[in-house]
């Protein structure tokens, strides 16, 4: 399972970087979406996968978890990162829309005025 996920993470990163390097700003933003998802999946994979063992204390038991259980902290991290990523990407989408309206082009090569 980890091998599969690791491969998926790798493919996601590669695709994201490829898209970010494209000239179209729409593809650029799609690349950023994939990049943040790749990072989230990486946290999930690297913190260890434990199946069928939710970190719940059975009713009536001691207040201590016994045995191997899934790590809830990694999922909390990912949830936080997803929320932040969602907000930032919503901003990025609005930004490229505004940029398209102002520059009248979907092409990074047309946006070099501030570079020289």
């Amino acid at each position: 399972m980890s091998t599969l996920l690791a491969t998926a993470v790798g493919v996601l990163y590669a695709t994201a970087i490829y898209l970010i390097l494209r000239r179209s700003i729409v593809k650029l933003v799609i690349g950023l979406v994939l990049l943040s998802n790749a990072a989230n999946l990486l946290i999930f994979t690297s913190s260890g996968l434990t199946r069928y063992a939710p970190p719940l204390i059975p009713e009536g038991a001691d207040m201590v978890l016994n045995g191997v259980v899934a790590d809830p902290l990694a999922q909390a991290l990912i949830l936080t990162a997803i929320v932040i990523g969602f907000g930032v990407l919503a901003f990025a989408v609005v930004l490229i829309h505004r940029a398209y309206e102002v520059v009248k082009a979907d092409d990074m090569d047309q946006m070099k005025d501030t570079d020289t």
Binding site: L32, G48, A74
Partner: peptide, 14 residues
């Protein structure tokens, strides 16, 4: 930020 987050993920895994 994505690189930073990836580094945190790997660090946490380690």
């Amino acid at each position: 930020s994505a690189i930073f987050l990836s580094a945190i993920g790997l660090l946490y895994g380690l």
